[in-house]
Amino acid sequence: MIGPKRIVFLAKLLPVIGVVLILPPLVSVANVDANLFGFPAIITYMFAVWIFLILAAYLLQRKLPSSPADQSEQFPNKSSRNKSSGNNLSDTNND
């Protein structure tokens, strides 16, 4: 198992990995006139990186700790919020 500290580290590392993958010089490796899996190599590469990032983000967010309950939920007028949205004061910041 990977510890929570490592997960957080990976979460911070992921965008860095993404940057490295989509910028030269690494991206130039795939920038050749060749076909890969039936597509131009560069297309395959870019979309593969993209899918990798999405997958990694998906897997990481399941392991990352949840944020504490929204602070605004703890305000004293919680009951009034459910009673009538017109009186809801906690969410007036949405404008």
Partner: peptide, 12 residues
């Protein structure tokens, strides 16, 4: 790519 990187790096 920019938005993708920002969102997959949301923790940061």
């Amino acid at each position: 790519m920019g938005p993708t990187l920002v969102f997959v790096g949301w923790w940061f």
